[in-house]
Design a protein around this nucleic acid. Structure first.
Length: 469
RNA sequence: CGGGCUGUAGCGCAGCUUGGUAGCGCGCUGCGUUCGGGACGCAGAGGUCCCGGGUUCAAAUCCCGGCAGCCCGACCA
Protein backbone atom coordinates (compact mmCIF):
# COMPACT_ATOMS: atom_id res chain seq x y z
CA UNK A 1 0.00 0.00 0.00
CA UNK A 2 2.62 2.50 1.03
CA UNK A 3 3.90 4.28 -2.05
CA UNK A 4 7.55 4.82 -2.52
CA UNK A 5 8.49 7.36 -5.12
CA UNK A 6 8.15 6.20 -8.69
CA UNK A 7 10.64 8.68 -10.04
CA UNK A 8 14.10 9.66 -8.92
CA UNK A 9 13.54 12.86 -6.89
CA UNK A 10 14.70 16.06 -8.61
CA UNK A 11 16.92 17.01 -5.70
CA UNK A 12 18.70 13.66 -5.81
CA UNK A 13 19.60 13.56 -9.49
CA UNK A 14 17.90 16.01 -11.85
CA UNK A 15 19.03 14.47 -15.17
CA UNK A 16 17.91 11.06 -13.95
CA UNK A 17 14.56 12.52 -12.90
CA UNK A 18 14.19 13.96 -16.41
CA UNK A 19 14.87 10.59 -18.03
CA UNK A 20 12.47 8.88 -15.65
CA UNK A 21 9.69 11.32 -16.55
CA UNK A 22 10.26 10.92 -20.28
CA UNK A 23 10.09 7.12 -19.91
CA UNK A 24 7.32 6.76 -17.34
CA UNK A 25 5.06 9.38 -18.89
CA UNK A 26 5.51 7.44 -22.15
CA UNK A 27 6.73 10.49 -24.04
CA UNK A 28 9.70 9.15 -25.99
CA UNK A 29 12.27 6.41 -26.44
CA UNK A 30 15.77 6.46 -27.82
CA UNK A 31 15.91 5.52 -31.49
CA UNK A 32 18.23 2.84 -32.86
CA UNK A 33 20.68 5.35 -34.35
CA UNK A 34 22.59 7.35 -31.77
CA UNK A 35 20.85 10.55 -30.81
CA UNK A 36 17.62 9.79 -32.61
CA UNK A 37 14.29 9.86 -30.85
CA UNK A 38 11.05 7.94 -31.12
CA UNK A 39 8.24 10.23 -29.99
CA UNK A 40 5.46 8.18 -28.43
CA UNK A 41 1.78 9.06 -28.78
CA UNK A 42 1.51 11.06 -25.55
CA UNK A 43 4.65 13.05 -26.27
CA UNK A 44 3.51 13.62 -29.82
CA UNK A 45 0.05 14.75 -28.67
CA UNK A 46 1.76 17.45 -26.61
CA UNK A 47 3.86 18.49 -29.61
CA UNK A 48 0.74 18.60 -31.79
CA UNK A 49 -0.85 20.99 -29.30
CA UNK A 50 2.26 23.17 -29.42
CA UNK A 51 2.16 23.07 -33.20
CA UNK A 52 -1.52 24.04 -33.33
CA UNK A 53 -1.06 26.99 -30.99
CA UNK A 54 2.07 28.31 -32.68
CA UNK A 55 0.77 27.66 -36.19
CA UNK A 56 -2.34 29.76 -35.53
CA UNK A 57 -0.17 32.63 -34.29
CA UNK A 58 2.22 32.33 -37.25
CA UNK A 59 -0.70 32.57 -39.67
CA UNK A 60 -2.10 35.49 -37.71
CA UNK A 61 1.24 37.22 -38.33
CA UNK A 62 0.70 36.73 -42.05
CA UNK A 63 3.12 33.91 -42.87
CA UNK A 64 2.05 31.00 -45.07
CA UNK A 65 3.10 27.39 -44.73
CA UNK A 66 5.11 25.70 -47.47
CA UNK A 67 7.48 22.76 -47.69
CA UNK A 68 11.05 22.55 -48.92
CA UNK A 69 13.15 19.42 -49.49
CA UNK A 70 15.04 17.47 -46.84
CA UNK A 71 18.07 17.22 -49.18
CA UNK A 72 20.17 20.27 -49.96
CA UNK A 73 23.14 20.42 -52.36
CA UNK A 74 26.30 20.69 -50.34
CA UNK A 75 27.47 23.61 -52.45
CA UNK A 76 24.65 25.79 -51.10
CA UNK A 77 26.25 25.80 -47.68
CA UNK A 78 29.49 27.20 -49.01
CA UNK A 79 27.83 30.30 -50.37
CA UNK A 80 27.56 31.96 -46.95
CA UNK A 81 30.91 31.81 -45.17
CA UNK A 82 29.77 32.08 -41.55
CA UNK A 83 26.87 29.73 -42.12
CA UNK A 84 29.04 26.92 -43.45
CA UNK A 85 31.60 27.45 -40.74
CA UNK A 86 28.95 27.29 -38.04
CA UNK A 87 27.14 24.24 -39.34
CA UNK A 88 29.85 22.09 -40.95
CA UNK A 89 30.73 20.15 -37.79
CA UNK A 90 27.20 18.90 -37.33
CA UNK A 91 26.09 18.10 -40.88
CA UNK A 92 24.94 14.66 -41.96
CA UNK A 93 25.98 14.20 -45.57
CA UNK A 94 24.72 11.68 -48.12
CA UNK A 95 27.55 10.54 -50.37
CA UNK A 96 25.99 7.44 -51.91
CA UNK A 97 22.56 6.85 -53.43
CA UNK A 98 21.11 4.45 -55.94
CA UNK A 99 24.08 2.19 -55.50
CA UNK A 100 26.63 4.72 -56.69
CA UNK A 101 28.68 7.56 -55.32
CA UNK A 102 27.07 10.94 -55.93
CA UNK A 103 28.82 13.54 -58.05
CA UNK A 104 27.98 16.18 -55.45
CA UNK A 105 27.31 15.22 -51.83
CA UNK A 106 23.85 16.01 -50.48
CA UNK A 107 23.39 17.56 -47.07
CA UNK A 108 20.48 16.52 -44.88
CA UNK A 109 19.13 19.93 -43.86
CA UNK A 110 20.21 21.25 -40.48
CA UNK A 111 18.12 24.37 -41.27
CA UNK A 112 16.80 25.69 -44.57
CA UNK A 113 18.03 29.25 -45.10
CA UNK A 114 20.06 28.17 -48.11
CA UNK A 115 17.51 26.22 -50.10
CA UNK A 116 14.76 28.69 -49.29
CA UNK A 117 17.05 31.55 -50.29
CA UNK A 118 17.50 29.89 -53.67
CA UNK A 119 13.76 29.83 -54.23
CA UNK A 120 13.13 33.30 -52.85
CA UNK A 121 15.46 34.50 -55.56
CA UNK A 122 13.22 32.82 -58.14
CA UNK A 123 9.96 34.02 -56.72
CA UNK A 124 10.83 37.61 -55.91
CA UNK A 125 10.97 39.96 -58.88
CA UNK A 126 9.39 43.20 -57.77
CA UNK A 127 8.87 45.23 -54.62
CA UNK A 128 5.26 44.15 -55.07
CA UNK A 129 6.33 40.58 -54.16
CA UNK A 130 7.51 41.76 -50.75
CA UNK A 131 7.37 40.96 -47.99
CA UNK A 132 7.48 37.23 -48.71
CA UNK A 133 6.47 35.45 -45.51
CA UNK A 134 7.03 31.68 -45.38
CA UNK A 135 7.01 29.03 -42.71
CA UNK A 136 7.55 25.29 -42.79
CA UNK A 137 7.01 22.49 -40.30
CA UNK A 138 9.71 19.92 -40.79
CA UNK A 139 12.39 17.70 -39.38
CA UNK A 140 16.05 18.72 -39.40
CA UNK A 141 19.25 16.87 -38.60
CA UNK A 142 22.20 18.12 -36.59
CA UNK A 143 24.86 15.63 -35.58
CA UNK A 144 25.15 16.68 -31.97
CA UNK A 145 27.91 15.23 -29.87
CA UNK A 146 25.88 14.81 -26.71
CA UNK A 147 22.26 14.06 -27.48
CA UNK A 148 19.42 14.10 -24.94
CA UNK A 149 15.80 13.25 -25.61
CA UNK A 150 13.86 16.35 -26.73
CA UNK A 151 16.61 18.75 -25.62
CA UNK A 152 19.23 17.85 -28.16
CA UNK A 153 18.43 15.01 -30.54
CA UNK A 154 20.20 14.33 -33.83
CA UNK A 155 16.92 14.70 -35.65
CA UNK A 156 14.27 17.01 -34.30
CA UNK A 157 10.96 18.53 -35.37
CA UNK A 158 10.40 22.25 -35.62
CA UNK A 159 8.94 25.11 -37.52
CA UNK A 160 11.26 27.42 -39.37
CA UNK A 161 10.00 30.72 -40.69
CA UNK A 162 11.80 32.51 -43.50
CA UNK A 163 10.92 35.96 -44.73
CA UNK A 164 12.23 38.51 -47.22
CA UNK A 165 11.69 42.24 -46.96
CA UNK A 166 12.48 45.39 -48.91
CA UNK A 167 14.11 47.25 -46.05
CA UNK A 168 16.19 46.62 -42.97
CA UNK A 169 13.54 48.26 -40.79
CA UNK A 170 10.74 46.11 -42.15
CA UNK A 171 12.76 42.91 -41.64
CA UNK A 172 13.80 43.86 -38.12
CA UNK A 173 10.25 44.81 -37.19
CA UNK A 174 8.87 41.53 -38.50
CA UNK A 175 11.43 39.40 -36.68
CA UNK A 176 10.55 41.23 -33.50
CA UNK A 177 6.83 40.85 -34.16
CA UNK A 178 7.27 37.08 -34.51
CA UNK A 179 9.31 37.00 -31.35
CA UNK A 180 6.67 38.80 -29.33
CA UNK A 181 3.36 37.84 -30.95
CA UNK A 182 4.14 34.23 -31.82
CA UNK A 183 6.78 32.98 -29.42
CA UNK A 184 6.36 35.07 -26.33
CA UNK A 185 2.59 35.00 -26.58
CA UNK A 186 2.66 31.22 -26.86
CA UNK A 187 5.19 30.85 -24.06
CA UNK A 188 3.35 33.11 -21.64
CA UNK A 189 -0.25 32.27 -22.43
CA UNK A 190 -0.06 28.58 -23.34
CA UNK A 191 3.14 27.08 -21.96
CA UNK A 192 3.01 29.24 -18.81
CA UNK A 193 6.70 29.88 -19.38
CA UNK A 194 8.12 33.22 -18.29
CA UNK A 195 11.42 34.02 -19.99
CA UNK A 196 13.95 36.76 -20.44
CA UNK A 197 13.58 38.22 -23.90
CA UNK A 198 16.72 39.68 -25.35
CA UNK A 199 19.37 39.40 -28.00
CA UNK A 200 22.34 37.07 -28.15
CA UNK A 201 25.84 38.47 -27.75
CA UNK A 202 27.85 38.26 -30.99
CA UNK A 203 29.56 35.08 -29.77
CA UNK A 204 26.26 33.23 -29.47
CA UNK A 205 24.57 34.46 -32.63
CA UNK A 206 23.12 32.15 -35.29
CA UNK A 207 25.72 31.43 -37.98
CA UNK A 208 25.12 34.06 -40.66
CA UNK A 209 22.80 36.35 -38.68
CA UNK A 210 23.37 40.00 -37.87
CA UNK A 211 21.13 39.81 -34.82
CA UNK A 212 19.56 36.94 -32.90
CA UNK A 213 16.66 37.32 -30.46
CA UNK A 214 16.05 34.68 -27.82
CA UNK A 215 13.65 33.71 -25.05
CA UNK A 216 15.59 32.26 -22.14
CA UNK A 217 13.65 30.26 -19.60
CA UNK A 218 14.88 28.84 -16.32
CA UNK A 219 14.51 25.16 -15.56
CA UNK A 220 13.90 23.73 -12.09
CA UNK A 221 17.58 22.98 -11.64
CA UNK A 222 18.52 26.60 -12.31
CA UNK A 223 19.86 26.06 -15.82
CA UNK A 224 18.74 28.13 -18.79
CA UNK A 225 16.97 26.82 -21.86
CA UNK A 226 16.57 28.76 -25.09
CA UNK A 227 12.90 28.27 -25.85
CA UNK A 228 12.67 30.04 -29.21
CA UNK A 229 14.78 32.21 -31.45
CA UNK A 230 14.34 34.85 -34.18
CA UNK A 231 17.13 36.05 -36.43
CA UNK A 232 17.72 39.13 -38.51
CA UNK A 233 19.87 37.86 -41.35
CA UNK A 234 20.54 41.29 -42.84
CA UNK A 235 21.50 40.89 -46.50
CA UNK A 236 23.91 37.99 -45.90
CA UNK A 237 21.76 35.23 -47.33
CA UNK A 238 20.12 37.49 -49.89
CA UNK A 239 23.58 38.30 -51.24
CA UNK A 240 24.64 34.64 -51.23
CA UNK A 241 21.53 33.54 -53.13
CA UNK A 242 20.89 36.63 -55.27
CA UNK A 243 17.61 37.57 -53.69
CA UNK A 244 17.06 40.89 -55.50
CA UNK A 245 13.92 42.86 -56.20
CA UNK A 246 13.20 45.77 -58.50
CA UNK A 247 12.24 48.88 -56.56
CA UNK A 248 9.54 51.40 -57.48
CA UNK A 249 12.33 53.48 -58.96
CA UNK A 250 13.32 50.56 -61.17
CA UNK A 251 16.58 49.78 -59.38
CA UNK A 252 17.74 46.25 -58.49
CA UNK A 253 17.89 46.07 -54.69
CA UNK A 254 19.03 43.34 -52.33
CA UNK A 255 16.41 41.97 -49.91
CA UNK A 256 16.71 41.74 -46.16
CA UNK A 257 15.76 38.34 -44.73
CA UNK A 258 14.80 36.84 -41.37
CA UNK A 259 14.46 33.35 -39.99
CA UNK A 260 12.93 32.08 -36.76
CA UNK A 261 12.30 28.74 -35.16
CA UNK A 262 10.92 26.72 -32.26
CA UNK A 263 11.40 23.00 -31.88
CA UNK A 264 10.50 19.83 -30.00
CA UNK A 265 13.02 21.10 -27.46
CA UNK A 266 10.00 22.93 -26.04
CA UNK A 267 8.68 19.56 -24.88
CA UNK A 268 11.87 19.11 -22.86
CA UNK A 269 11.40 22.65 -21.56
CA UNK A 270 7.85 21.84 -20.52
CA UNK A 271 9.09 18.88 -18.50
CA UNK A 272 11.89 20.74 -16.73
CA UNK A 273 9.99 23.97 -16.20
CA UNK A 274 6.85 22.63 -14.56
CA UNK A 275 7.59 19.03 -13.62
CA UNK A 276 7.85 17.92 -9.97
CA UNK A 277 8.74 14.76 -8.07
CA UNK A 278 5.43 13.21 -9.08
CA UNK A 279 6.08 13.74 -12.78
CA UNK A 280 5.03 16.04 -15.54
CA UNK A 281 2.69 18.97 -14.93
CA UNK A 282 1.07 20.21 -18.15
CA UNK A 283 -0.50 23.68 -18.27
CA UNK A 284 -4.24 23.32 -19.03
CA UNK A 285 -4.21 25.38 -22.22
CA UNK A 286 -1.54 23.11 -23.64
CA UNK A 287 -2.72 19.76 -22.26
CA UNK A 288 -3.97 17.23 -24.81
CA UNK A 289 -5.99 15.81 -21.93
CA UNK A 290 -7.20 18.53 -19.58
CA UNK A 291 -9.35 16.40 -17.33
CA UNK A 292 -9.26 12.69 -16.64
CA UNK A 293 -12.42 11.20 -15.20
CA UNK A 294 -11.36 8.32 -13.03
CA UNK A 295 -13.62 5.51 -11.84
CA UNK A 296 -12.62 4.44 -8.35
CA UNK A 297 -14.12 1.04 -9.02
CA UNK A 298 -14.97 -0.65 -12.28
CA UNK A 299 -18.72 -0.93 -11.53
CA UNK A 300 -21.72 -0.15 -13.75
CA UNK A 301 -23.10 2.72 -11.64
CA UNK A 302 -19.71 4.33 -11.32
CA UNK A 303 -18.88 3.92 -15.00
CA UNK A 304 -22.19 5.38 -16.00
CA UNK A 305 -21.57 8.43 -13.82
CA UNK A 306 -18.10 8.79 -15.37
CA UNK A 307 -19.52 8.81 -18.88
CA UNK A 308 -22.10 11.36 -17.85
CA UNK A 309 -19.47 13.68 -16.41
CA UNK A 310 -17.22 13.23 -19.45
CA UNK A 311 -20.02 14.01 -21.87
CA UNK A 312 -20.89 17.18 -19.98
CA UNK A 313 -17.24 18.24 -19.92
CA UNK A 314 -16.85 17.67 -23.66
CA UNK A 315 -19.94 19.76 -24.27
CA UNK A 316 -18.28 22.51 -22.24
CA UNK A 317 -15.28 22.38 -24.60
CA UNK A 318 -12.94 20.49 -22.27
CA UNK A 319 -10.47 17.90 -23.60
CA UNK A 320 -11.31 14.86 -21.51
CA UNK A 321 -10.37 11.19 -21.06
CA UNK A 322 -12.19 8.53 -19.07
CA UNK A 323 -10.37 5.84 -17.12
CA UNK A 324 -12.43 3.00 -15.79
CA UNK A 325 -9.86 0.43 -16.65
CA UNK A 326 -8.84 -2.41 -14.44
CA UNK A 327 -6.02 -2.22 -11.98
CA UNK A 328 -5.82 -0.62 -8.59
CA UNK A 329 -7.10 2.89 -8.10
CA UNK A 330 -3.82 4.05 -6.59
CA UNK A 331 -1.81 2.84 -9.54
CA UNK A 332 -4.05 4.63 -12.02
CA UNK A 333 -3.82 7.87 -10.04
CA UNK A 334 -0.05 7.66 -10.09
CA UNK A 335 0.01 7.04 -13.83
CA UNK A 336 -2.13 10.10 -14.59
CA UNK A 337 -0.05 12.21 -12.24
CA UNK A 338 3.13 11.25 -14.06
CA UNK A 339 1.46 12.33 -17.31
CA UNK A 340 0.66 15.68 -15.70
CA UNK A 341 -3.06 15.90 -16.54
CA UNK A 342 -4.19 19.19 -14.91
CA UNK A 343 -7.40 17.97 -13.28
CA UNK A 344 -8.55 14.59 -12.06
CA UNK A 345 -12.19 13.87 -11.37
CA UNK A 346 -12.56 10.88 -9.04
CA UNK A 347 -15.88 9.11 -9.20
CA UNK A 348 -16.47 6.50 -6.49
CA UNK A 349 -19.44 4.79 -4.87
CA UNK A 350 -19.05 6.64 -1.58
CA UNK A 351 -19.12 10.13 -3.12
CA UNK A 352 -21.70 9.07 -5.65
CA UNK A 353 -24.15 8.08 -2.92
CA UNK A 354 -24.17 11.73 -1.96
CA UNK A 355 -24.30 12.92 -5.57
CA UNK A 356 -20.73 14.19 -5.48
CA UNK A 357 -17.36 13.64 -7.06
CA UNK A 358 -13.87 14.72 -6.02
CA UNK A 359 -11.80 17.08 -8.16
CA UNK A 360 -8.04 17.08 -7.64
CA UNK A 361 -5.64 19.65 -9.09
CA UNK A 362 -2.32 18.36 -10.40
CA UNK A 363 -0.40 21.56 -9.71
CA UNK A 364 -1.03 21.83 -5.96
CA UNK A 365 -2.83 18.53 -5.16
CA UNK A 366 -5.81 20.39 -3.69
CA UNK A 367 -8.97 18.31 -3.49
CA UNK A 368 -12.53 19.56 -3.51
CA UNK A 369 -15.91 17.87 -3.37
CA UNK A 370 -18.23 18.97 -6.17
CA UNK A 371 -21.79 18.06 -7.06
CA UNK A 372 -21.90 15.60 -9.95
CA UNK A 373 -23.99 17.96 -12.06
CA UNK A 374 -21.75 20.95 -11.39
CA UNK A 375 -18.46 19.51 -12.72
CA UNK A 376 -18.84 20.77 -16.27
CA UNK A 377 -19.71 24.25 -15.08
CA UNK A 378 -16.80 24.44 -12.66
CA UNK A 379 -14.01 22.77 -14.66
CA UNK A 380 -13.28 25.48 -17.26
CA UNK A 381 -12.76 28.11 -14.59
CA UNK A 382 -10.70 25.77 -12.49
CA UNK A 383 -8.49 24.97 -15.49
CA UNK A 384 -7.91 28.68 -16.01
CA UNK A 385 -6.94 29.15 -12.39
CA UNK A 386 -4.48 26.25 -12.66
CA UNK A 387 -3.04 27.90 -15.76
CA UNK A 388 -2.65 31.22 -13.94
CA UNK A 389 -1.16 29.63 -10.84
CA UNK A 390 1.39 27.72 -12.90
CA UNK A 391 2.54 30.84 -14.69
CA UNK A 392 2.71 32.80 -11.46
CA UNK A 393 4.75 30.13 -9.70
CA UNK A 394 7.14 29.84 -12.67
CA UNK A 395 7.44 33.62 -12.81
CA UNK A 396 8.30 33.76 -9.13
CA UNK A 397 10.94 31.06 -9.55
CA UNK A 398 12.51 32.97 -12.41
CA UNK A 399 12.56 36.15 -10.37
CA UNK A 400 13.88 34.52 -7.22
CA UNK A 401 16.59 32.67 -9.15
CA UNK A 402 17.90 35.86 -10.74
CA UNK A 403 20.45 37.84 -8.76
CA UNK A 404 21.93 41.20 -9.62
CA UNK A 405 25.70 41.28 -9.38
CA UNK A 406 28.45 43.64 -10.45
CA UNK A 407 31.45 41.45 -11.26
CA UNK A 408 32.22 38.42 -13.40
CA UNK A 409 33.33 36.44 -10.36
CA UNK A 410 30.06 37.09 -8.56
CA UNK A 411 28.26 36.12 -11.75
CA UNK A 412 30.15 32.83 -11.89
CA UNK A 413 29.15 32.12 -8.36
CA UNK A 414 25.47 32.84 -8.90
CA UNK A 415 25.41 30.92 -12.20
CA UNK A 416 26.14 27.66 -10.38
CA UNK A 417 22.52 27.60 -9.24
CA UNK A 418 20.64 30.31 -11.11
CA UNK A 419 20.78 33.41 -13.29
CA UNK A 420 23.11 36.35 -12.75
CA UNK A 421 22.20 39.77 -14.11
CA UNK A 422 24.91 42.35 -14.55
CA UNK A 423 26.06 45.19 -16.77
CA UNK A 424 27.05 43.93 -20.23
CA UNK A 425 29.94 46.36 -20.16
CA UNK A 426 31.33 44.50 -17.12
CA UNK A 427 31.76 41.31 -19.16
CA UNK A 428 33.67 41.86 -22.41
CA UNK A 429 35.58 39.22 -24.40
CA UNK A 430 37.78 38.28 -21.47
CA UNK A 431 34.78 37.95 -19.22
CA UNK A 432 33.03 35.65 -21.66
CA UNK A 433 36.16 33.52 -21.92
CA UNK A 434 36.37 33.25 -18.14
CA UNK A 435 32.71 32.26 -17.88
CA UNK A 436 33.24 29.53 -20.47
CA UNK A 437 35.89 27.87 -18.35
CA UNK A 438 33.03 26.90 -16.03
CA UNK A 439 30.48 26.13 -18.76
CA UNK A 440 28.67 29.41 -18.10
CA UNK A 441 27.54 31.65 -20.96
CA UNK A 442 25.92 35.00 -21.61
CA UNK A 443 22.36 33.93 -22.37
CA UNK A 444 21.07 37.27 -23.55
CA UNK A 445 21.42 41.03 -23.51
CA UNK A 446 18.48 43.16 -22.48
CA UNK A 447 17.64 46.71 -21.58
CA UNK A 448 17.36 47.70 -17.92
CA UNK A 449 13.57 47.88 -18.32
CA UNK A 450 13.54 44.32 -19.69
CA UNK A 451 12.78 45.22 -23.29
CA UNK A 452 14.67 43.87 -26.31
CA UNK A 453 17.62 45.92 -27.55
CA UNK A 454 18.10 46.68 -31.23
CA UNK A 455 21.79 45.84 -31.11
CA UNK A 456 24.52 44.76 -28.73
CA UNK A 457 26.17 48.15 -29.07
CA UNK A 458 23.39 50.03 -27.26
CA UNK A 459 24.65 51.76 -24.16
CA UNK A 460 23.66 50.62 -20.66
CA UNK A 461 22.60 47.06 -21.53
CA UNK A 462 22.29 44.33 -18.94
CA UNK A 463 23.04 40.70 -19.55
CA UNK A 464 21.82 37.39 -18.13
CA UNK A 465 24.51 34.85 -17.38
CA UNK A 466 23.85 31.17 -16.61
CA UNK A 467 24.60 27.55 -17.27
CA UNK A 468 22.43 26.18 -20.02
CA UNK A 469 21.13 23.11 -21.82
C1' C B 1 38.73 13.77 -30.27
C1' G B 2 40.92 13.51 -24.71
C1' G B 3 39.75 11.24 -19.53
C1' G B 4 36.68 7.54 -16.62
C1' C B 5 33.10 3.38 -16.87
C1' U B 6 29.82 -0.45 -18.85
C1' G B 7 27.99 -4.42 -22.45
C1' U B 8 24.02 -11.03 -19.26
C1' A B 9 15.54 -11.62 -20.55
C1' G B 10 11.56 -5.66 -22.50
C1' C B 11 13.96 -2.46 -18.24
C1' G B 12 17.36 -2.38 -13.87
C1' C B 13 21.09 -5.63 -12.26
C1' A B 14 23.79 -10.15 -9.74
C1' G B 15 26.99 -14.11 -11.28
C1' C B 16 33.21 -13.40 -13.42
C1' U B 17 38.04 -13.07 -8.26
C1' U B 18 38.45 -19.39 -7.72
C1' G B 19 35.96 -22.13 -15.54
C1' G B 20 31.40 -27.12 -14.57
C1' U B 21 22.81 -27.14 -15.12
C1' A B 22 21.86 -18.95 -16.87
C1' G B 23 19.84 -16.18 -11.97
C1' C B 24 17.17 -11.94 -9.10
C1' G B 25 13.76 -7.56 -8.99
C1' C B 26 10.32 -4.93 -12.01
C1' G B 27 7.49 -5.65 -16.32
C1' C B 28 4.68 -9.42 -19.42
C1' U B 29 0.67 -13.92 -19.98
C1' G B 30 -3.36 -16.98 -17.47
C1' C B 31 -6.69 -17.86 -13.28
C1' G B 32 -8.55 -16.09 -8.66
C1' U B 33 -9.04 -12.49 -4.80
C1' U B 34 -8.68 -7.07 -4.91
C1' C B 35 -9.60 -1.60 -6.13
C1' G B 36 -11.04 5.92 -1.91
C1' G B 37 -2.94 6.96 -3.10
C1' G B 38 2.09 2.31 -7.05
C1' A B 39 -2.54 -4.57 -4.37
C1' C B 40 -1.73 -9.91 -3.55
C1' G B 41 -1.64 -15.45 -4.28
C1' C B 42 -0.73 -19.43 -7.52
C1' A B 43 0.81 -21.03 -12.35
C1' G B 44 3.65 -19.57 -16.78
C1' A B 45 6.35 -17.30 -21.11
C1' G B 46 10.77 -15.02 -22.26
C1' G B 47 18.35 -15.63 -23.33
C1' U B 48 23.13 -15.84 -30.24
C1' C B 49 25.55 -13.89 -21.76
C1' C B 50 27.93 -7.40 -27.66
C1' C B 51 31.01 -9.72 -31.90
C1' G B 52 35.34 -12.62 -33.62
C1' G B 53 39.41 -15.58 -32.41
C1' G B 54 42.41 -18.33 -28.68
C1' U B 55 43.34 -21.58 -24.15
C1' U B 56 40.63 -25.93 -22.12
C1' C B 57 37.49 -32.21 -21.63
C1' A B 58 34.50 -27.77 -20.52
C1' A B 59 34.18 -20.38 -21.18
C1' A B 60 29.09 -15.47 -19.25
C1' U B 61 33.69 -16.45 -16.33
C1' C B 62 40.63 -16.74 -18.39
C1' C B 63 43.71 -14.42 -22.83
C1' C B 64 43.95 -11.39 -27.56
C1' G B 65 41.47 -8.27 -31.10
C1' G B 66 37.21 -5.63 -32.64
C1' C B 67 32.42 -3.08 -31.99
C1' A B 68 28.70 -0.48 -29.30
C1' G B 69 26.88 2.49 -25.40
C1' C B 70 27.11 5.72 -20.91
C1' C B 71 29.33 9.79 -17.89
C1' C B 72 32.79 14.31 -17.75
C1' G B 73 34.90 18.30 -21.43
C1' A B 74 34.93 21.14 -26.52
C1' C B 75 29.88 21.96 -30.18
C1' C B 76 24.58 23.00 -29.93
C1' A B 77 17.34 24.56 -31.44
Amino acid sequence: MASKSVLTPQAEDFPRWYQDVVAKAEMADNGPVRGTMVIRPYGYAIWERMQAEMDARIKEAGAQNAYFPLFIPESYFHREAEHVEGFSPELAVVTHAGGAQLAEPIVVRPTSETVIGEFMAKWIQSYRDLPLLLNQWSNVVRWELRPRLFLRSSEFLWQEGHTAHATYDDAAAYAKRIHLEVYNDFLVNVLAAPTYLGIKPPSERFAGAINTMTAEGIMRDGKALQMATSHELGQNFARAFDVYYQSEAGQAELCFTTSWGASTRLVGGLIMLHGDDNGLVVPPRLAPIQVVVLAVRDEPDVNEACEKVATALKAAGVRVAVDHGRGSFGRRITDWEIKGVPLRVEVGPRDLAEGRVTIVRRDDAQKSAVALDAVAAIAPGLLESVQAAMFESARRRLEESTHDVTTIHEALDVAQTGFARLAWSAVGDEGEALLRTEAVTVRCLLRPDGSIPVSDTEAGLHCIVAKSY
